[in-house]
Design a binder for these strands. Structure first.
Lengths: 237, 237
DNA sequence: ACCTGAACACCGTTCAAGT
DNA sequence: ACCTGAACACCGTTCAAGT
């Protein structure tokens, strides 16, 4: 990238290519944007540097490694949940209300960041029992408090936490996979006929193809969530 | 799976390091073993070649690219399901029996290949509606046939298929993550104190840490599966 | 204090060449 | 027919050097 010649104002101001100075948060956000645009596989230190008008090596002043960069991006995206006004309210309307808000907040997050969500779901967490997508001690504590205060035993609260995590991962991972289809690697669209499945040997698939292609994620999410809440409720007394 | 042929095998003389000749299936199996031993991140064409006593470039005669290699490994591991005698029986004992067998077969697969399973769960499939971990048209057809023949409507069968996939992904992905903890990248054990979470601000987590660390995956899997079957059953009639 | 250039070890992949 | 050597473009990362 040809640049510089920006000797006039060191702080700010150029309309075309100004460079607000590097800092960790700016790098993480640029990383999240880059992943959403090009996929994780395409994210290299060099390319992210270029995006920020900087050499790759400069990033190492703020981020110890590419791995740590990815962890940082995940953390920074998940932290958006704290500023979701629909989620972050005092849990005084009962545990079902709390779980509903939390689940829908995480679904909004997943749909907003379909390319980052698989990382949220699959990166190793701080401790083995901190299960995605609730990747922080603070949320786990909050979850368990809501449940125990509602009358669940310690064992039941922990079991509910696990069931809730599994429910979210399964539903949201498959939803974003169907969305962007790029849940792991591979970037090219590839609309070649080879990619179009040959259904001649599968009469039922042929018949149901329209149904199978229909997107009912929202309804299914709500239905499964409802069933989960019922199941948990039945454990209470 | 050692192949036939190679009768006198004149060129495989070395006692310690004989080289049974390259073929696609051998490469895929070696890849699966390598991933289970060292993690996906460590798998490079060069290293896999070395494992097979061959230069990396030789692999390209059987596998178009590293991406395709990973897809091939996933396919070859999932294909083990066909030779699981507990799973692959005629579905004449009812749909619940069928779903139970299938679910437990996939759980065995996940536990046997904890490092490969995340790939099974996250690699883009043949068609967008072919949801992991049932990554083949054949299994989807089989699933839908079992359900419709049991009296589910087309819509209900498709919905059941989606609910079943989500259930499996959520439960099994989190189970293998807790197992190997390496659900994505990063290889080092790192038992440093920095990795040990500081729980001073989270009294409930402190109190429940033993419960949280307990492994109850099998029971929870069975309980959630049971609840799912009940939910589906209630839609019948 | 912050960024860069050059360098190292390692990748995936191509292709002409060996046997 | 099957494998290899050399080469290319690209990585992550280190470190001494620039400003």
């Amino acid at each position: 990238m040809v640049e510089s010649g920006t000797s006039a104002s060191p702080e700010t101001g150029h309309p075309g290519g100004d460079r607000p100075r590097l800092d960790r948060q700016r790098i993480l956000e640029a990383g999240a944007v880059f992943i959403e645009e090009h996929g994780v596989r395409q994210l290299s230190m060099r390319r992210l540097g270029a995006e920020l008008d900087v050499e790759a090596m400069s990033l190492y002043r703020y981020v110890p490694s590419r791995e740590d960069l990815l962890d940082g991006i995940v953390e920074s995206v998940v932290d958006e949940l704290y500023s979701d006004p629909e989620v972050y309210v005092e849990p005084r309307y009962g545990w079902q209300d709390y779980l509903l808000r939390l689940a829908h907040g995480l679904r909004r997050l997943a749909v907003k960041h379909p390319q980052v969500f698989p990382l949220i779901a699959t990166r190793p967490a701080e401790a083995p029992w901190v299960r995605p997508p609730l990747r922080s001690l603070r949320w786990v504590e909050s979850f368990l408090r809501a449940m125990t205060q509602a009358g669940f035993s310690n064992e039941q609260a922990v079991e509910a936490y696990r069931a809730f995590s599994s429910f979210l991962i399964g539903n949201l991972l498959l939803e974003v996979a169907a969305l962007g289809a790029d849940i792991g690697p591979v970037e090219d669209p590839d609309p070649s006929p080879s990619r179009q499945a040959d259904l001649t040997d599968y009469p039922l698939l042929q018949e149901l193809q329209d149904l199978l292609s229909e997107d009912r994620s929202k309804q299914e999410f709500d239905a499964a969530l409802d069933a989960l809440l019922d199941r948990l409720d039945s454990q209470l007394t």
